[in-house]
Amino acid sequence: MWELLGIWIQVFLTLAIFSFLYRDNPFYKFAEHLFVGVATGYWVVLQIRNVLIPNLFQPLFGEFSDPWLVIPLFLGLVLFMRLSDKYSYMSRWGMAAVVGIFSGLAIFGFGGGDLIIQIRSNVMPFIDTEAVQAFTQKAGVITFLNILSNPIFIIGVICVLFYFFFSTEHTGALGVVSKIGIYLLMISFGASYGNTVMARISLFIDRAQFGIVNWIPTVIIGILMIIAFVVLAITGKVDPKKQF
């Protein structure tokens, strides 16, 4: 029974969100506000249940196993001092700890995980002898393209870096190099956009599959929504020609 009700609610909310594609409307607004409220409530409960109780309250007040946890408790509580005009400066102590720890981890992680290793991985031979060997053994389009991989990569990195080199005017040879750089950047933006389109279609496929599996509530709620839109249009509360 509850599962069935859940499916009907899911179908309604899915169609309510998609109805925004027709135009902004009360169904969409309801679903949007409901989502924000539920997400906030869920997050608060989860923080208390999964973080504060097992990692702070239980060891500090329940088992008395780690008295040092008083320090993070204090730093956490002083964050609320922002609500007081007189003691708001105290909230900076907690914020300083948060910013300091995250900055330290981010710098450390970026240096070790990104900067050094990525520069090292960009240092490669212009011609990959293994790719040439593979081509001589089995000549084909793929093996030929593999030979071009390293030159394209190296030239690409150099051209893009020159595009971001602003100390000299981009004219002459430097202009040509930076132009190639911007074209390569555009290709990468295109790839990113393509991936974004793919992701968005995947989201729709998921909802469409859900709607097809549960086609009875989808059809019923869909028809009721269309009737509601017709009524709203007739009564003049919604202009069907206006899109958003």
């Binding site: 989860l46 923080q47 999964n50 973080v51 990692n55 720890i101 995250f102 981890l105 981010a106 992680g109």
Partner: peptide
């Protein structure tokens, strides 16, 4: 193990 707040701090 569930969810834990802390992001990079949890990993470290």
């Amino acid at each position: 193990l569930g969810y834990k707040e802390g992001r990079e701090i949890v990993m470290a």
